[in-house]
Design a binder for these strands. Sequence first.
DNA 1: CCTGTTCTTGCACGTTTCTGCGTGTATCGT
DNA 2: ACGATACACGCAGAAACGTGCAAGAACAGG
Lengths: 252, 252
Amino acid sequence: MLAAERRDHLLGLLAREGKVVAKNVAADLGISEDSVRRDLRDLAAEGLCHRVYGGALPVSPAVADYATRTSVTPDGKRKVATRAAALVRPGSALILDGGTTALAVARTLPPELACTVITHSPTIAAAMIEHPLADVFLLGGRIFKHSAVACGAAAVEAAQNVSADICLLGVTGVHPEAGLTTGDAEEAAMKRALAARAADTYILASSEKIGTASRFRVLPWEDISGLITDADPGHPVAEQLMARGVEILAAD
Amino acid sequence: MLAAERRDHLLGLLAREGKVVAKNVAADLGISEDSVRRDLRDLAAEGLCHRVYGGALPVSPAVADYATRTSVTPDGKRKVATRAAALVRPGSALILDGGTTALAVARTLPPELACTVITHSPTIAAAMIEHPLADVFLLGGRIFKHSAVACGAAAVEAAQNVSADICLLGVTGVHPEAGLTTGDAEEAAMKRALAARAADTYILASSEKIGTASRFRVLPWEDISGLITDADPGHPVAEQLMARGVEILAAD
DNA sequence: CCTGTTCTTGCACGTTTCTGCGTGTATCGT
DNA sequence: ACGATACACGCAGAAACGTGCAAGAACAGG
Protein backbone atom coordinates (compact mmCIF):
# COMPACT_ATOMS: atom_id res chain seq x y z
CA MET A 1 0.00 0.00 0.00
CA LEU A 2 1.65 3.18 -1.23
CA ALA A 3 1.31 6.35 0.81
CA ALA A 4 -0.08 8.20 -2.22
CA GLU A 5 -2.58 5.38 -2.68
CA ARG A 6 -3.85 5.88 0.84
CA ARG A 7 -4.30 9.57 0.20
CA ASP A 8 -6.33 8.88 -2.94
CA HIS A 9 -8.39 6.33 -1.06
CA LEU A 10 -9.18 8.91 1.61
CA LEU A 11 -10.12 11.57 -0.94
CA GLY A 12 -12.29 9.04 -2.73
CA LEU A 13 -14.09 8.18 0.49
CA LEU A 14 -14.64 11.86 1.20
CA ALA A 15 -16.13 12.46 -2.23
CA ARG A 16 -18.24 9.29 -2.22
CA GLU A 17 -19.50 9.11 1.32
CA GLY A 18 -19.01 12.65 2.54
CA LYS A 19 -16.91 11.63 5.54
CA VAL A 20 -13.96 9.59 6.75
CA VAL A 21 -13.68 7.83 10.10
CA ALA A 22 -10.04 7.26 10.95
CA LYS A 23 -10.66 4.10 12.94
CA ASN A 24 -12.69 2.38 10.21
CA VAL A 25 -10.24 3.22 7.45
CA ALA A 26 -7.35 1.91 9.51
CA ALA A 27 -9.20 -1.36 10.05
CA ASP A 28 -10.28 -1.64 6.40
CA LEU A 29 -6.80 -1.06 5.00
CA GLY A 30 -5.01 -2.95 7.74
CA ILE A 31 -2.81 -0.02 8.75
CA SER A 32 -2.41 1.86 11.99
CA GLU A 33 -4.70 4.70 12.93
CA ASP A 34 -1.62 6.86 13.27
CA SER A 35 -0.92 6.64 9.56
CA VAL A 36 -4.51 7.56 8.73
CA ARG A 37 -4.36 10.49 11.10
CA ARG A 38 -1.06 11.62 9.63
CA ASP A 39 -2.51 11.49 6.12
CA LEU A 40 -5.61 13.40 7.15
CA ARG A 41 -3.42 16.00 8.82
CA ASP A 42 -1.44 16.42 5.60
CA LEU A 43 -4.55 16.62 3.44
CA ALA A 44 -6.05 19.18 5.78
CA ALA A 45 -2.84 21.23 5.58
CA GLU A 46 -3.26 21.28 1.79
CA GLY A 47 -6.87 22.31 2.14
CA LEU A 48 -8.17 19.06 0.65
CA CYS A 49 -10.27 18.08 3.63
CA HIS A 50 -11.57 19.44 6.88
CA ARG A 51 -10.20 17.71 9.95
CA VAL A 52 -12.67 16.89 12.70
CA TYR A 53 -12.51 14.79 15.85
CA GLY A 54 -12.67 11.16 14.81
CA GLY A 55 -11.94 11.66 11.12
CA ALA A 56 -12.43 14.25 8.41
CA LEU A 57 -15.08 15.89 6.22
CA PRO A 58 -14.93 17.28 2.67
CA VAL A 59 -13.71 20.84 2.51
CA SER A 60 -16.88 22.01 0.81
CA PRO A 61 -20.16 20.11 1.10
CA ALA A 62 -20.94 21.12 -2.51
CA VAL A 63 -18.37 18.71 -3.90
CA ALA A 64 -19.55 15.94 -1.63
CA ASP A 65 -21.76 13.02 -2.27
CA TYR A 66 -24.42 12.47 -4.79
CA ALA A 67 -27.14 11.97 -2.21
CA THR A 68 -26.74 15.33 -0.47
CA ARG A 69 -26.50 17.20 -3.76
CA THR A 70 -29.74 15.79 -5.13
CA SER A 71 -31.46 16.39 -1.82
CA VAL A 72 -31.09 20.16 -2.18
CA THR A 73 -33.11 20.21 -5.40
CA PRO A 74 -36.77 20.76 -4.62
CA ASP A 75 -38.81 17.64 -4.25
CA GLY A 76 -40.95 18.29 -7.34
CA LYS A 77 -37.98 18.75 -9.64
CA ARG A 78 -36.34 15.61 -8.32
CA LYS A 79 -39.45 13.59 -9.04
CA VAL A 80 -39.67 14.99 -12.55
CA ALA A 81 -35.98 14.33 -13.09
CA THR A 82 -36.26 10.73 -11.95
CA ARG A 83 -39.18 10.07 -14.31
CA ALA A 84 -37.33 11.76 -17.18
CA ALA A 85 -34.10 9.84 -16.54
CA ALA A 86 -36.09 6.61 -16.89
CA LEU A 87 -36.83 7.54 -20.51
CA VAL A 88 -33.16 7.46 -21.47
CA ARG A 89 -32.23 4.06 -22.89
CA PRO A 90 -28.65 2.78 -22.89
CA GLY A 91 -26.94 3.66 -26.15
CA SER A 92 -29.46 6.31 -27.12
CA ALA A 93 -28.81 9.98 -27.83
CA LEU A 94 -30.37 12.64 -25.64
CA ILE A 95 -30.71 16.38 -26.14
CA LEU A 96 -30.78 18.02 -22.73
CA ASP A 97 -31.93 21.61 -22.23
CA GLY A 98 -30.48 23.97 -19.63
CA GLY A 99 -32.06 24.95 -16.32
CA THR A 100 -32.25 23.48 -12.86
CA THR A 101 -34.68 20.71 -13.72
CA ALA A 102 -32.53 19.53 -16.63
CA LEU A 103 -29.51 19.69 -14.34
CA ALA A 104 -31.35 17.45 -11.92
CA VAL A 105 -31.91 15.02 -14.81
CA ALA A 106 -28.20 14.99 -15.61
CA ARG A 107 -27.40 14.18 -12.00
CA THR A 108 -30.09 11.54 -11.83
CA LEU A 109 -28.89 9.59 -14.86
CA PRO A 110 -27.25 6.33 -13.74
CA PRO A 111 -23.51 6.97 -13.30
CA GLU A 112 -22.59 4.01 -15.51
CA LEU A 113 -25.10 4.69 -18.30
CA ALA A 114 -23.54 4.67 -21.77
CA CYS A 115 -25.36 7.25 -23.88
CA THR A 116 -24.81 10.43 -25.86
CA VAL A 117 -25.82 13.71 -24.24
CA ILE A 118 -26.10 16.83 -26.37
CA THR A 119 -26.54 20.10 -24.52
CA HIS A 120 -26.14 23.85 -24.90
CA SER A 121 -25.63 24.30 -21.16
CA PRO A 122 -22.06 24.47 -19.84
CA THR A 123 -23.38 23.65 -16.37
CA ILE A 124 -24.91 20.42 -17.59
CA ALA A 125 -21.82 19.54 -19.62
CA ALA A 126 -19.74 20.02 -16.48
CA ALA A 127 -22.14 17.87 -14.45
CA MET A 128 -21.89 15.07 -17.04
CA ILE A 129 -18.16 14.77 -16.32
CA GLU A 130 -19.24 12.52 -13.46
CA HIS A 131 -20.62 10.01 -15.97
CA PRO A 132 -17.56 8.23 -17.37
CA LEU A 133 -19.41 6.31 -20.09
CA ALA A 134 -21.53 9.18 -21.39
CA ASP A 135 -20.46 10.84 -24.61
CA VAL A 136 -21.07 14.57 -24.15
CA PHE A 137 -21.42 16.98 -27.04
CA LEU A 138 -21.54 20.65 -26.21
CA LEU A 139 -23.31 23.12 -28.50
CA GLY A 140 -21.36 26.36 -28.52
CA GLY A 141 -22.47 29.94 -28.90
CA ARG A 142 -22.94 33.15 -27.02
CA ILE A 143 -23.74 32.52 -23.37
CA PHE A 144 -26.91 34.14 -22.07
CA LYS A 145 -26.21 35.12 -18.48
CA HIS A 146 -29.82 34.91 -17.40
CA SER A 147 -30.09 31.17 -17.87
CA ALA A 148 -26.44 30.18 -18.39
CA VAL A 149 -26.93 28.51 -21.75
CA ALA A 150 -25.58 29.05 -25.25
CA CYS A 151 -28.11 30.83 -27.46
CA GLY A 152 -28.14 32.90 -30.57
CA ALA A 153 -27.37 32.24 -34.20
CA ALA A 154 -24.19 30.25 -33.62
CA ALA A 155 -25.86 27.93 -31.14
CA VAL A 156 -28.89 27.34 -33.36
CA GLU A 157 -26.55 26.64 -36.26
CA ALA A 158 -24.55 24.17 -34.17
CA ALA A 159 -27.79 22.42 -33.25
CA GLN A 160 -28.54 21.80 -36.93
CA ASN A 161 -25.63 19.37 -37.08
CA VAL A 162 -26.89 16.94 -34.47
CA SER A 163 -29.85 14.65 -34.03
CA ALA A 164 -31.06 12.53 -31.18
CA ASP A 165 -33.68 10.04 -30.03
CA ILE A 166 -35.26 12.22 -27.41
CA CYS A 167 -35.14 15.82 -26.28
CA LEU A 168 -35.89 16.89 -22.70
CA LEU A 169 -36.95 20.52 -22.58
CA GLY A 170 -37.56 22.79 -19.61
CA VAL A 171 -40.09 25.61 -19.85
CA THR A 172 -41.34 28.25 -17.43
CA GLY A 173 -45.01 28.08 -18.37
CA VAL A 174 -47.44 25.28 -19.24
CA HIS A 175 -50.90 26.54 -20.11
CA PRO A 176 -53.77 24.93 -22.05
CA GLU A 177 -54.29 27.97 -24.28
CA ALA A 178 -50.90 29.74 -24.28
CA GLY A 179 -49.06 26.46 -24.72
CA LEU A 180 -45.45 26.00 -23.67
CA THR A 181 -43.76 29.30 -22.94
CA THR A 182 -40.57 30.82 -21.63
CA GLY A 183 -39.39 34.31 -20.66
CA ASP A 184 -36.85 35.01 -23.39
CA ALA A 185 -37.24 35.05 -27.17
CA GLU A 186 -33.72 33.79 -27.89
CA GLU A 187 -34.18 30.95 -25.47
CA ALA A 188 -37.50 30.05 -27.03
CA ALA A 189 -35.88 29.90 -30.45
CA MET A 190 -33.06 27.75 -29.12
CA LYS A 191 -35.51 25.34 -27.52
CA ARG A 192 -37.39 25.05 -30.82
CA ALA A 193 -34.11 24.32 -32.61
CA LEU A 194 -33.30 21.58 -30.10
CA ALA A 195 -36.75 20.00 -30.23
CA ALA A 196 -36.59 19.89 -34.02
CA ARG A 197 -33.49 17.70 -33.88
CA ALA A 198 -35.00 14.88 -31.81
CA ALA A 199 -37.48 12.18 -32.73
CA ASP A 200 -39.41 12.70 -29.47
CA THR A 201 -39.64 15.79 -27.30
CA TYR A 202 -40.72 15.69 -23.66
CA ILE A 203 -41.38 18.72 -21.49
CA LEU A 204 -40.04 18.87 -17.93
CA ALA A 205 -42.48 20.82 -15.78
CA SER A 206 -42.68 20.60 -12.02
CA SER A 207 -46.14 21.34 -10.63
CA GLU A 208 -45.63 25.07 -9.97
CA LYS A 209 -45.27 25.66 -13.75
CA ILE A 210 -48.65 24.13 -14.57
CA GLY A 211 -51.31 26.64 -15.47
CA THR A 212 -48.90 29.59 -15.87
CA ALA A 213 -47.70 31.31 -19.04
CA SER A 214 -44.66 33.43 -19.95
CA ARG A 215 -44.22 35.88 -22.79
CA PHE A 216 -42.72 33.74 -25.56
CA ARG A 217 -44.19 30.61 -27.09
CA VAL A 218 -41.77 27.70 -27.43
CA LEU A 219 -43.76 24.97 -29.16
CA PRO A 220 -47.33 24.06 -29.99
CA TRP A 221 -48.80 20.99 -28.31
CA GLU A 222 -48.64 18.96 -31.51
CA ASP A 223 -44.83 19.03 -31.53
CA ILE A 224 -44.31 17.31 -28.20
CA SER A 225 -44.57 13.66 -27.27
CA GLY A 226 -45.37 14.15 -23.63
CA LEU A 227 -45.30 16.24 -20.49
CA ILE A 228 -43.42 15.01 -17.43
CA THR A 229 -44.80 16.51 -14.25
CA ASP A 230 -45.35 15.78 -10.59
CA ALA A 231 -48.70 17.58 -10.64
CA ASP A 232 -51.74 15.63 -9.55
CA PRO A 233 -53.26 13.85 -12.63
CA GLY A 234 -56.59 15.15 -11.36
CA HIS A 235 -55.36 18.74 -11.67
CA PRO A 236 -57.82 20.65 -13.90
CA VAL A 237 -55.08 21.87 -16.25
CA ALA A 238 -53.69 18.33 -16.55
CA GLU A 239 -57.14 17.07 -17.52
CA GLN A 240 -57.51 19.83 -20.10
CA LEU A 241 -54.15 18.87 -21.58
CA MET A 242 -55.10 15.20 -21.72
CA ALA A 243 -58.29 16.24 -23.53
CA ARG A 244 -56.05 17.94 -26.09
CA GLY A 245 -54.23 14.68 -26.62
CA VAL A 246 -51.08 15.48 -24.60
CA GLU A 247 -49.64 12.44 -22.90
CA ILE A 248 -48.99 13.11 -19.21
CA LEU A 249 -46.15 11.15 -17.63
CA ALA A 250 -46.78 11.22 -13.92
CA ALA A 251 -43.70 11.62 -11.71
CA ASP A 252 -44.17 10.34 -8.17
CA MET B 1 15.60 -7.80 -20.48
CA LEU B 2 16.03 -4.67 -22.58
CA ALA B 3 15.78 -1.27 -20.97
CA ALA B 4 13.03 -0.21 -23.38
CA GLU B 5 11.19 -3.41 -22.54
CA ARG B 6 11.29 -2.54 -18.87
CA ARG B 7 9.96 0.93 -19.58
CA ASP B 8 7.03 -0.47 -21.56
CA HIS B 9 6.35 -2.96 -18.82
CA LEU B 10 6.22 -0.16 -16.26
CA LEU B 11 3.94 2.01 -18.39
CA GLY B 12 1.70 -0.98 -19.01
CA LEU B 13 1.50 -1.69 -15.33
CA LEU B 14 0.62 1.92 -14.65
CA ALA B 15 -2.15 1.88 -17.23
CA ARG B 16 -3.48 -1.52 -16.17
CA GLU B 17 -3.26 -1.40 -12.42
CA GLY B 18 -2.98 2.30 -11.74
CA LYS B 19 0.24 1.98 -9.78
CA VAL B 20 3.73 0.55 -9.70
CA VAL B 21 5.53 -0.71 -6.61
CA ALA B 22 9.26 -0.69 -7.23
CA LYS B 23 9.95 -3.63 -4.94
CA ASN B 24 7.39 -5.92 -6.56
CA VAL B 25 8.45 -5.13 -10.11
CA ALA B 26 12.08 -5.79 -9.24
CA ALA B 27 11.14 -9.17 -7.80
CA ASP B 28 8.85 -10.07 -10.73
CA LEU B 29 11.38 -9.22 -13.41
CA GLY B 30 14.37 -10.48 -11.45
CA ILE B 31 16.23 -7.18 -11.63
CA SER B 32 17.47 -4.87 -8.93
CA GLU B 33 15.27 -2.25 -7.36
CA ASP B 34 17.84 0.32 -8.40
CA SER B 35 17.10 -0.25 -12.07
CA VAL B 36 13.39 0.07 -11.50
CA ARG B 37 13.91 3.26 -9.57
CA ARG B 38 16.15 4.63 -12.31
CA ASP B 39 13.51 3.87 -14.93
CA LEU B 40 10.76 5.45 -12.89
CA ARG B 41 12.90 8.52 -12.36
CA ASP B 42 13.41 8.83 -16.12
CA LEU B 43 9.74 8.32 -16.89
CA ALA B 44 8.81 10.92 -14.30
CA ALA B 45 11.26 13.38 -15.87
CA GLU B 46 9.44 12.90 -19.17
CA GLY B 47 6.12 13.47 -17.48
CA LEU B 48 4.92 9.91 -18.16
CA CYS B 49 4.35 8.99 -14.55
CA HIS B 50 4.21 10.54 -11.13
CA ARG B 51 6.91 9.41 -8.75
CA VAL B 52 5.91 8.65 -5.17
CA TYR B 53 7.65 7.03 -2.23
CA GLY B 54 7.63 3.29 -2.89
CA GLY B 55 6.84 3.39 -6.58
CA ALA B 56 4.91 5.51 -9.05
CA LEU B 57 1.38 6.47 -10.10
CA PRO B 58 -0.11 7.39 -13.49
CA VAL B 59 0.29 11.04 -14.33
CA SER B 60 -3.48 11.63 -14.25
CA PRO B 61 -5.07 9.19 -11.83
CA ALA B 62 -8.76 8.67 -12.52
CA VAL B 63 -9.35 8.46 -8.78
CA ALA B 64 -8.79 12.19 -8.29
CA ASP B 65 -12.05 13.45 -9.66
CA TYR B 66 -12.42 16.81 -11.29
CA ALA B 67 -14.60 18.22 -8.53
CA THR B 68 -12.03 17.79 -5.79
CA ARG B 69 -9.23 18.95 -8.05
CA THR B 70 -11.03 22.21 -8.74
CA SER B 71 -12.10 22.78 -5.17
CA VAL B 72 -8.75 24.16 -4.07
CA THR B 73 -6.38 26.49 -5.85
CA PRO B 74 -2.78 25.98 -4.80
CA ASP B 75 -0.83 29.11 -4.01
CA GLY B 76 1.31 28.93 -7.17
CA LYS B 77 -1.67 28.77 -9.50
CA ARG B 78 -3.34 31.68 -7.75
CA LYS B 79 -0.23 33.82 -8.22
CA VAL B 80 -0.05 32.91 -11.90
CA ALA B 81 -3.76 33.63 -12.30
CA THR B 82 -3.43 37.06 -10.71
CA ARG B 83 -0.57 38.03 -13.01
CA ALA B 84 -2.47 36.72 -16.04
CA ALA B 85 -5.67 38.55 -15.13
CA ALA B 86 -3.69 41.79 -15.10
CA LEU B 87 -3.02 41.33 -18.83
CA VAL B 88 -6.71 41.53 -19.71
CA ARG B 89 -7.66 45.09 -20.69
CA PRO B 90 -11.24 46.39 -20.48
CA GLY B 91 -13.02 45.93 -23.78
CA SER B 92 -10.53 43.39 -25.11
CA ALA B 93 -11.24 39.86 -26.24
CA LEU B 94 -9.63 36.95 -24.42
CA ILE B 95 -9.35 33.30 -25.38
CA LEU B 96 -9.19 31.22 -22.21
CA ASP B 97 -8.04 27.60 -22.21
CA GLY B 98 -9.44 24.92 -19.89
CA GLY B 99 -7.76 23.52 -16.80
CA THR B 100 -7.49 24.51 -13.18
CA THR B 101 -5.08 27.39 -13.72
CA ALA B 102 -7.29 28.95 -16.40
CA LEU B 103 -10.26 28.49 -14.09
CA ALA B 104 -8.36 30.41 -11.44
CA VAL B 105 -7.85 33.20 -14.01
CA ALA B 106 -11.58 33.33 -14.72
CA ARG B 107 -12.30 33.65 -11.02
CA THR B 108 -9.59 36.28 -10.58
CA LEU B 109 -10.86 38.59 -13.33
CA PRO B 110 -12.44 41.73 -11.82
CA PRO B 111 -16.18 41.10 -11.40
CA GLU B 112 -17.10 44.31 -13.17
CA LEU B 113 -14.67 43.95 -16.08
CA ALA B 114 -16.31 44.38 -19.48
CA CYS B 115 -14.57 42.08 -21.92
CA THR B 116 -15.20 39.15 -24.25
CA VAL B 117 -14.17 35.71 -23.06
CA ILE B 118 -13.97 32.86 -25.56
CA THR B 119 -13.48 29.38 -24.13
CA HIS B 120 -13.90 25.70 -24.95
CA SER B 121 -14.32 24.79 -21.30
CA PRO B 122 -17.88 24.48 -19.92
CA THR B 123 -16.46 24.85 -16.42
CA ILE B 124 -14.93 28.20 -17.26
CA ALA B 125 -18.05 29.33 -19.11
CA ALA B 126 -20.07 28.47 -16.00
CA ALA B 127 -17.61 30.37 -13.79
CA MET B 128 -17.90 33.45 -16.01
CA ILE B 129 -21.62 33.68 -15.22
CA GLU B 130 -20.46 35.56 -12.11
CA HIS B 131 -19.13 38.37 -14.33
CA PRO B 132 -22.22 40.32 -15.42
CA LEU B 133 -20.41 42.56 -17.92
CA ALA B 134 -18.34 39.85 -19.60
CA ASP B 135 -19.51 38.59 -22.95
CA VAL B 136 -18.92 34.83 -22.97
CA PHE B 137 -18.66 32.79 -26.14
CA LEU B 138 -18.53 29.03 -25.76
CA LEU B 139 -16.82 26.87 -28.36
CA GLY B 140 -18.76 23.63 -28.71
CA GLY B 141 -17.64 20.13 -29.53
CA ARG B 142 -17.17 16.72 -28.06
CA ILE B 143 -16.26 16.91 -24.38
CA PHE B 144 -13.06 15.16 -23.34
CA LYS B 145 -13.69 13.81 -19.86
CA HIS B 146 -10.09 13.88 -18.77
CA SER B 147 -9.77 17.65 -18.86
CA ALA B 148 -13.42 18.68 -19.23
CA VAL B 149 -13.01 20.72 -22.39
CA ALA B 150 -14.45 20.58 -25.90
CA CYS B 151 -11.98 19.06 -28.36
CA GLY B 152 -12.02 17.40 -31.74
CA ALA B 153 -12.90 18.52 -35.23
CA ALA B 154 -16.06 20.43 -34.32
CA ALA B 155 -14.31 22.42 -31.61
CA VAL B 156 -11.35 23.28 -33.83
CA GLU B 157 -13.76 24.34 -36.56
CA ALA B 158 -15.69 26.53 -34.13
CA ALA B 159 -12.44 28.16 -33.09
CA GLN B 160 -11.78 29.24 -36.69
CA ASN B 161 -14.69 31.66 -36.47
CA VAL B 162 -13.37 33.75 -33.61
CA SER B 163 -10.39 35.98 -32.99
CA ALA B 164 -9.09 37.74 -29.92
CA ASP B 165 -6.43 40.04 -28.55
CA ILE B 166 -4.79 37.56 -26.22
CA CYS B 167 -4.91 33.84 -25.55
CA LEU B 168 -4.07 32.33 -22.16
CA LEU B 169 -3.02 28.72 -22.50
CA GLY B 170 -2.32 26.10 -19.86
CA VAL B 171 0.17 23.30 -20.49
CA THR B 172 1.45 20.39 -18.40
CA GLY B 173 5.09 20.64 -19.36
CA VAL B 174 7.52 23.52 -19.95
CA HIS B 175 10.94 22.31 -21.04
CA PRO B 176 13.80 24.13 -22.82
CA GLU B 177 14.28 21.38 -25.42
CA ALA B 178 10.88 19.66 -25.52
CA GLY B 179 9.04 23.00 -25.56
CA LEU B 180 5.46 23.36 -24.41
CA THR B 181 3.78 19.99 -24.02
CA THR B 182 0.59 18.34 -22.85
CA GLY B 183 -0.54 14.77 -22.26
CA ASP B 184 -3.15 14.41 -24.99
CA ALA B 185 -2.84 14.84 -28.77
CA GLU B 186 -6.37 16.20 -29.24
CA GLU B 187 -5.86 18.72 -26.51
CA ALA B 188 -2.58 19.80 -28.03
CA ALA B 189 -4.27 20.37 -31.40
CA MET B 190 -7.07 22.35 -29.75
CA LYS B 191 -4.58 24.54 -27.91
CA ARG B 192 -2.79 25.23 -31.20
CA ALA B 193 -6.08 26.18 -32.83
CA LEU B 194 -6.84 28.60 -30.00
CA ALA B 195 -3.38 30.17 -30.01
CA ALA B 196 -3.63 30.75 -33.76
CA ARG B 197 -6.73 32.91 -33.28
CA ALA B 198 -5.15 35.45 -30.93
CA ALA B 199 -2.67 38.26 -31.55
CA ASP B 200 -0.68 37.32 -28.45
CA THR B 201 -0.42 33.98 -26.65
CA TYR B 202 0.75 33.63 -23.06
CA ILE B 203 1.45 30.36 -21.28
CA LEU B 204 0.20 29.75 -17.75
CA ALA B 205 2.67 27.52 -15.91
CA SER B 206 2.92 27.24 -12.15
CA SER B 207 6.39 26.31 -10.93
CA GLU B 208 5.85 22.55 -10.73
CA LYS B 209 5.42 22.45 -14.53
CA ILE B 210 8.79 24.06 -15.21
CA GLY B 211 11.43 21.65 -16.43
CA THR B 212 9.00 18.80 -17.10
CA ALA B 213 7.75 17.49 -20.43
CA SER B 214 4.71 15.50 -21.56
CA ARG B 215 4.21 13.45 -24.68
CA PHE B 216 2.66 15.93 -27.13
CA ARG B 217 4.09 19.22 -28.29
CA VAL B 218 1.70 22.16 -28.22
CA LEU B 219 3.65 25.07 -29.65
CA PRO B 220 7.23 26.07 -30.44
CA TRP B 221 8.72 28.92 -28.43
CA GLU B 222 8.49 31.31 -31.38
CA ASP B 223 4.70 31.24 -31.33
CA ILE B 224 4.24 32.55 -27.83
CA SER B 225 4.55 36.06 -26.46
CA GLY B 226 5.45 35.11 -22.92
CA LEU B 227 5.43 32.65 -20.05
CA ILE B 228 3.60 33.49 -16.84
CA THR B 229 5.03 31.58 -13.89
CA ASP B 230 5.65 31.82 -10.17
CA ALA B 231 8.98 30.03 -10.51
CA ASP B 232 12.06 31.83 -9.24
CA PRO B 233 13.54 33.99 -12.07
CA GLY B 234 16.89 32.53 -11.08
CA HIS B 235 15.61 29.01 -11.79
CA PRO B 236 18.06 27.38 -14.27
CA VAL B 237 15.26 26.46 -16.69
CA ALA B 238 13.89 30.02 -16.53
CA GLU B 239 17.32 31.38 -17.41
CA GLN B 240 17.63 28.97 -20.32
CA LEU B 241 14.26 30.13 -21.61
CA MET B 242 15.22 33.77 -21.33
CA ALA B 243 18.36 33.00 -23.30
CA ARG B 244 16.07 31.63 -26.00
CA GLY B 245 14.22 34.93 -26.09
CA VAL B 246 11.14 33.88 -24.16
CA GLU B 247 9.71 36.68 -22.07
CA ILE B 248 9.15 35.56 -18.48
CA LEU B 249 6.34 37.32 -16.60
CA ALA B 250 7.05 36.78 -12.93
CA ALA B 251 4.01 36.12 -10.73
CA ASP B 252 4.60 36.93 -7.07
C1' DC C 1 40.70 -9.36 -33.99
C1' DC C 2 41.96 -6.09 -30.72
C1' DT C 3 41.27 -1.86 -28.13
C1' DG C 4 39.28 2.14 -26.18
C1' DT C 5 34.93 4.32 -25.21
C1' DT C 6 30.36 4.52 -23.68
C1' DC C 7 26.45 2.84 -21.51
C1' DT C 8 24.16 -0.12 -18.40
C1' DT C 9 23.73 -2.67 -14.29
C1' DG C 10 24.17 -4.24 -9.56
C1' DC C 11 26.26 -3.43 -5.14
C1' DA C 12 27.75 -0.75 -1.02
C1' DC C 13 27.20 3.12 1.62
C1' DG C 14 25.22 7.00 4.04
C1' DT C 15 20.87 9.69 4.15
C1' DT C 16 16.11 10.51 4.13
C1' DT C 17 11.47 9.08 4.82
C1' DC C 18 7.92 6.28 6.55
C1' DT C 19 5.51 3.56 10.02
C1' DG C 20 4.04 1.53 14.33
C1' DC C 21 4.34 1.81 19.26
C1' DG C 22 4.53 4.02 23.79
C1' DT C 23 3.56 8.01 26.44
C1' DG C 24 1.18 11.80 28.03
C1' DT C 25 -2.50 15.26 26.82
C1' DA C 26 -6.83 16.93 24.93
C1' DT C 27 -11.58 16.15 23.86
C1' DC C 28 -15.99 13.83 23.92
C1' DG C 29 -20.20 11.69 25.85
C1' DT C 30 -22.60 10.65 29.97
C1' DA D 1 -16.65 15.10 37.00
C1' DC D 2 -15.14 10.88 35.01
C1' DG D 3 -14.04 7.15 32.00
C1' DA D 4 -13.38 6.34 27.21
C1' DT D 5 -11.66 7.66 23.12
C1' DA D 6 -8.95 10.39 19.99
C1' DC D 7 -5.02 12.95 19.60
C1' DA D 8 0.05 14.81 19.15
C1' DC D 9 4.70 13.95 19.98
C1' DG D 10 8.93 11.45 20.22
C1' DC D 11 11.39 7.41 19.24
C1' DA D 12 13.43 3.43 16.92
C1' DG D 13 13.43 0.04 13.43
C1' DA D 14 12.54 -0.65 8.73
C1' DA D 15 12.15 0.59 4.21
C1' DA D 16 13.20 3.45 0.31
C1' DC D 17 16.21 6.69 -1.63
C1' DG D 18 20.37 8.88 -4.11
C1' DT D 19 25.17 8.54 -5.21
C1' DG D 20 29.60 6.78 -6.25
C1' DC D 21 31.96 2.88 -7.98
C1' DA D 22 33.36 -1.12 -10.44
C1' DA D 23 32.31 -5.06 -13.44
C1' DG D 24 30.40 -6.23 -17.71
C1' DA D 25 28.12 -5.68 -22.34
C1' DA D 26 27.61 -3.16 -26.64
C1' DC D 27 29.69 -0.62 -30.00
C1' DA D 28 32.91 1.88 -33.23
C1' DG D 29 37.29 2.34 -35.22
C1' DG D 30 41.75 0.78 -36.40
